[in-house]
């Protein structure tokens, strides 16, 4: 992931953590009638991480299910919504074994070429 993409992703996730209902069109969904949403991060590559509310505690948590991208309004992989829905079911079946608290990934966590240090 590029530096600007990571910055945008982190910002969107921070917004989701602080006030998920307030920012307009932060989340798109439910997609195809399934309890799956996607975050929109626009840039050179359109990142579309797939997530769901809950699924254990719907009022206070989101679960990131899988990473996807979008090109010409088509998700890559094309069955991203179905895959995400499958993973959601897995999480519901075994919430503690299939989830871990989100760990913030930061550009400066490791030395990377091109980073101004």
């Amino acid at each position: 992931m590029q530096k600007d993409e990571l910055a945008k992703l982190n910002q969107k996730l921070d917004m989701l953590r602080r006030e998920p209902e307030l920012p307009p069109q932060l989340l798109a969904g439910p997609l195809e009638g399934k309890p799956i949403h996607k975050l929109r991060i626009n840039g050179r590559v359109a990142l579309r991480p797939m997530l769901c509310k809950g699924p254990i505690n719907n009022d206070s948590e989101f679960t990131l299910l899988m990473g996807a991208t979008e090109k010409d309004r088509v998700l890559i992989p094309e069955d991203a919504i179905d895959q995400a829905a499958d993973r959601r079911r897995e999480v519901i079946a075994n919430p503690n074994g299939r989830r871990t608290p989100h760990e913030r990934v930061t550009w400066g966590t490791e030395e990377r070429p091109g980073a101004e240090r």
Partner: peptide
């Protein structure tokens, strides 16, 4: 901690994205 890592491009991209979100909201 994230922004304190002193990467100029990263922090400015983050701030711009936040600004866009704030205005829209």
């Amino acid at each position: 901690s994230d922004l304190g890592l002193n990467d100029k491009e990263y922090r400015h991209t983050y701030a711009n994205e936040r600004l866009n979100g704030l205005i829209a909201t």
